[in-house]
Structure formats: structure tokens, C-alpha cells
């Protein structure tokens, strides 16, 4: 306390700004940008949730030109693709928003690839599909903040997700060339949507199975993993003992054998 006052006095004498001035300035700045950001995001959220007739019509056009080849002009499905009645806006947002749809080629499962549509176009198609039959909606932002209970999320993840996605979300193999993808860098909204819609080979985790708050906890855990790099150093892909074994043989023993060759070569 005394130290603060003494520095204040010194600063005051030298004729410079009050030391709290910078703090106050930062505070003002934070409030304005934060407030503006909050306003902006809330309006954006309001826009996405408000489904208008024009959006549905726009979505119908996009659907007809990009999706109907496989899913049928009336969303009824064909031999090449399933019916989309009742899949909900969440499913469209996940499949199109992660680039899995439109499909590049048929294979064991839809591959993630660069996103083909803008968010507005995706929203329009989601609105169109949702307008035909009820289904899971795009989750609201409150579950996507990553501010839930990481411990519970981690436990739920280990019990429900890790057998396919690996404990660290690094992904894993499924049957017949299918696989559970890595969860690194996946948007929270897509994680949530995947849980409610069960894309590809993933089972559906409905709200009775894992409640929305628990889904938010899982997202919190994934966000924790993403924000905090491995405490032990490079994580070698988080693949477990296989990458550790390869590392010790190739780099550990490799380095040591190189040293032995070097030592022996000097003596010759």
C-alpha cells in the first residue's frame, strides 16, 4: 500500500499521468469492445435463429442445385443418398458446415474437406430442411462457451466418446475403413451437432442420454485440451504407446547408435 502511494507521489511530481489512468483506459476500452462484441454476437445469433420465408426459399434453391442429385428434389432420398426428413437443421449445419457435404466421392464415410458454402447459405439450407419436418435444431450459444465443468466433461468423454475418438480426441479406427476423426480444431457447435445428430457411424447422444449441460461440459473438456498443450512437451500425436515406441526406437536408440559409431570411429 505504502509503495503504491510513494510511486503515485513520484509520478505526480514528475508531471506524468496518474498511474491508474492506464488501468482506467484499458477498462474503458474493454467495456466498449466487449459490449460492442456482445451486441454484435447477440444480433448475429438473433439473425441465425430467426428463420424467414426468404431464407427457406433461398435454401430450397441451393438444395435443388447442390444436394438434390443424391437426396432427391423433395428431400425424399434416392439410392445414392438418404432421405433428409427429420434430420433437422443441426444435421445440415454439421454436414455442410464441416465440408463433409456435398460429398466429393462415395467411400467408407464422408471425408472432411474445405467448406463449400458460406455460413448464410448453410443456414438457408438448414432452414429449408428443418421447415419440412421437425428435427434437432442448431444449438444455442449458451452451451458452446466452454465454461462448463471440465472434470465431468472429461469423465463423460472417457466413458462415451474415447473408445472411438481416443482419450485425447486424436481419433481412432472403426471397421471397414471407417474411422472416428480427430477432434482437434472442431468448432464447439459442430461437436454439439454431431452428438445430437449422430453423423456417419457415430451414435446419437440425445438429450435424455447426455443432457445439454453435459454436452456443454464435454465441449469444455475438449476446449481445455485444445487451449492447453501437453504439459509433458511434444505430444507425439497423442496416440499413446505406439508413437512412443516408434520414437524411442528411431530417435532415442537411433541417436545413441549414432554416438556409439562416432565413439568407435574416433579410436580407429
Amino acid at each position: 500500500m505504502s509503495r503504491t502511494t510513494s510511486t503515485t507521489a513520484k509520478r505526480g511530481n514528475s508531471g506524468r499521468r496518474h498511474p491508474l489512468a492506464s488501468v482506467a483506459l484499458i477498462l474503458v476500452g474493454l467495456i466498449t469492445t466487449g459490449g460492442a462484441y456482445a451486441m454484435f454476437t447477440s444480433t448475429a445469433a438473433a439473425e441465425t435463429t430467426a428463420v424467414t420465408q426468404t431464407m427457406i426459399e433461398e435454401g430450397e434453391k441451393l438444395f435443388a442445385s447442390n444436394c438434390a442429385t443424391c437426396h432427391g428434389l423433395d428431400v425424399q432420398g434416392t439410392e445414392a443418398g438418404p432421405s433428409l426428413y427429420g434430420v433437422g437443421a443441426a444435421s445440415v449445419d454439421f454436414q455442410v458446415g464441416t465440408g463433409r457435404m456435398p460429398l466429393a466421392a462415395s467411400g467408407p464415410q464422408a471425408e472432411q474437406k474445405p467448406v463449400q458454402f458460406t455460413q448464410d447459405q448453410t443456414d438457408a439450407m438448414a432452414a429449408y430442411v428443418a421447415s419440412l419436418a421437425p428435427g434437432p435444431a442448431i444449438p444455442s450459444d449458451e452451451y458452446l462457451q466452454g465454461d462448463g465443468d471440465a472434470t465431468l466433461g472429461a469423465e463423460l468423454f472417457r466413458i462415451n466418446c474415447a473408445m472411438c475418438h481416443n482419450v485425447a480426441g486424436a481419433g481412432g479406427a472403426l471397421t471397414e475403413g471407417k474411422y472416428a476423426p480427430s477432434l482437434d480444431g472442431v468448432e464447439p457447435v459442430h461437436v454439439y451437432e454431431a452428438m445430437v445428430t449422430g453423423p456417419q457411424n457415430m451414435p446419437v447422444f440425445n438429450d435424455l442420454n447426455i443432457s445439454p449441460q453435459e454436452k456443454a461440459d464435454i465441449i469444455t473438456y475438449l476446449k481445455y485440451l485444445e487451449d492447453n498443450p501437453s504439459p509433458g512437451g511434444f505430444d507425439l500425436g497423442s496416440l499413446g504407446p505406439v508413437s512412443e515406441g516408434l520414437f524411442v526406437w528411431i530417435f532415442g536408440l537411433g541417436a545413441i547408435v549414432a554416438v556409439t559409431v562416432w565413439i568407435a570411429a574416433k579410436s580407429n
Binding site: A162, M163, N166, A180, G240
Partner: peptide
């Protein structure tokens, strides 16, 4: 109950 994908022993 849980088993992670990629569960292996040490080399």
C-alpha cells in the same frame, strides 16, 4: 467400463 481407441501396451 471405458476403453480408449488406440489402447496399446508399451512397445
Amino acid at each position: 467400463s471405458p476403453v480408449s481407441a488406440g489402447t496399446q501396451p508399451d512397445w
